[in-house]
Structures are given as structure tokens and as C-alpha cells.
């Protein structure tokens, strides 16, 4: 059988980050399984209830900590593969003896943004439900509309383009530390701005929470692999839809 040579864009992915992500997915899957047996969270598996459920099962009163931990696992699962390019650029621009330090600071700052975004994101589904009640539409319809509108907006493409930005980093001393942290924070912010509205979907559809999240992650990863493009209103509202076609086409080409 002919070997399928992976297209260049796929080879840009980092195996280490993919494995990290996979590990976190398995962890999420395992916990979600355990959680299903708890009636408390059956209607909605948002992370706060998940944390609460955990507290109930294990008899520990640490809802907030557990919720945060699960949230971090979820963020790592979804975003780790997206960080291949910025991390490679960070390594290239760090002195060899400082590479691990740079990476650690970047990752910590990046996660911090997502931790801060967590409570806001978790509160939105409630707000959407209230809104849905007011306008007499199903909540999921409103969530889909918000996500689709954001996907089509040029503003989102601007944010996504900034995720491709090469960092301008200092090499020495505290300036280098500061720049790595700043890079992590700004990258995290653009990343959250690009992706967060899409995350409404799994949050509003608890029955399909995990599969939807996984699907979105794959789509966002494909989108991240495509080069940046000029911002304008677009109908390409499925993230990575074009990349998927290119990928398919190039695999077909390699098989000819």
C-alpha cells in the first residue's frame, strides 16, 4: 500500500503537544464517565457542576479548586496543539540555556488568561438562557447565531491573524522573562477572543459536551494550520473548512 505522505501543514504540528492534549482528553473522558453516574450533574455538565459533583463523590469540599483544575485540563486538551508555532518561534528566539524557562513562563501566562476567562465563559450560558426566555427562542439557536456571526466577522479574522504573529522578544535577564510572560498573555487573549464564542456551543448542549468540544478542537487546529488572510466578512463559518478541503485534496494528490 502506498504510504500517505503527510501534507506540510500537518507536519507543523508538534507530537509532544499532541500527546499532552490527548492525555488531557482522556482525563476529561474518564472524569465525564464518572460524573454521569452522579444525578446531580446529569442535566448540565458544566465545569462548576462537575466540580461540585466531584466534591460530593469524594467528600471533599473543594468545588472551586476542582472546577479550576478541570477547566485547566480542558483548556490544555483543546489548545495545546494550537501552540506548536508560537512555541517553536519562542525556542528559536531564546538563548539555548533559557529555552525551558521561556517556555514555562509563556505557558503559565497563557493559561492564566484562560483561567481568568473561565468564570466569564461559564456565566454566559446562563445569560443566553435568560435572553432566550425573553425573546422566546431556544437558547441553542441564540448560541449558534452568536458563534456563527462571530465566525463570519472580519474582527475575528483580525484576532486570528494576530495568533500568527511572531513574537518580538528580549533575550537577556528580566526583560526576557517579562517578554515571555507578555507573549503568553497577548497570545492567550487573541486566542481566547478567536475561539471563546465557539465554545458556547458545547456549553449549551450538555448532552454532546465532550464530542462537540473534540470536534471543535480539530476544526480550530485545521484553521490554525492555514495561513493568515485579509480580514473581511466571510461565509466560511466552519473553522478550518478550507484547510480540510486542501488536506483532502493533497492526500488525494499524493495517492495518485
Amino acid at each position: 500500500m502506498a504510504r500517505i505522505p503527510l501534507p506540510a501543514m500537518v507536519r507543523q504540528m508538534s507530537p509532544a503537544l499532541l500527546i499532552t492534549s490527548l492525555f488531557c482528553w482522556l482525563l476529561l473522558y474518564a472524569t465525564s464517565h464518572e460524573l454521569q453516574s452522579v444525578p446531580l450533574c446529569a442535566p448540565s455538565q458544566t465545569l462548576v457542576t462537575a466540580g461540585a459533583a466531584y466534591s460530593t463523590i469524594h467528600g471533599i469540599n473543594a468545588t472551586a479548586i476542582l472546577a479550576t483544575a478541570l477547566w485547566i485540563v480542558m483548556v490544555i486538551a483543546m489548545t495545546a496543539p494550537l501552540l506548536a508555532q508560537p512555541i517553536a518561534q519562542l525556542r528559536l528566539r531564546s538563548l539555548a540555556r533559557r529555552r525551558n524557562r521561556s517556555l514555562g513562563l509563556f505557558a503559565a501566562a497563557y493559561l492564566l488568561v484562560w483561567i481568568a476567562a473561565g468564570p466569564v465563559l461559564l456565566a454566559v450560558p446562563k445569560a443566553v438562557e435568560v435572553l432566550a426566555g425573553a425573546v422566546d427562542l431556544p437558547a441553542i439557536t441564540i448560541a449558534v447565531a452568536i458563534a456563527a456571526l462571530w465566525q463570519a466577522a472580519p474582527l475575528r479574522q483580525r484576532a486570528l491573524n494576530r495568533c500568527h504573529r511572531l513574537p518580538n522578544l528580549s533575550a537577556f535577564g528580566t526583560a526576557a522573562d517579562r517578554d515571555c510572560i507578555q507573549f503568553g498573555l497577548t497570545h492567550g487573549l487573541w486566542c481566547a477572543a478567536t475561539c471563546a464564542p465557539l465554545m458556547l456551543l458545547p456549553m449549551m448542549a450538555p448532552a454532546f459536551h465532550l464530542p462537540l468540544m473534540l470536534l471543535l478542537s480539530v476544526a480550530l487546529q485545521l484553521e490554525r494550520l492555514a495561513p493568515a488572510r485579509p480580514p473581511s466578512w466571510t461565509l466560511r463559518i466552519l473553522p478550518g473548512q478550507l484547510t480540510a478541503v486542501t488536506l483532502f485534496r493533497s492526500i488525494r494528490w499524493s495517492l495518485r
Binding site: 479574522q157 483580525r158 491573524n161 494576530r162 495568533c163 500568527h164 504573529r165 511572531l166 518580538n168 495561513p227 493568515a228 488572510r229 485579509p230 480580514p231
Partner: peptide
């Protein structure tokens, strides 16, 4: 251009 395809990162 900051929002453009280069995200304002410039040339190398």
C-alpha cells in the same frame, strides 16, 4: 499591518 495576514509582524 497589524490585522493583516502578517499580523504586523513585518519582514525577516
Amino acid at each position: 499591518k497589524a490585522g493583516g495576514p502578517h499580523a504586523g509582524a513585518g519582514l525577516t
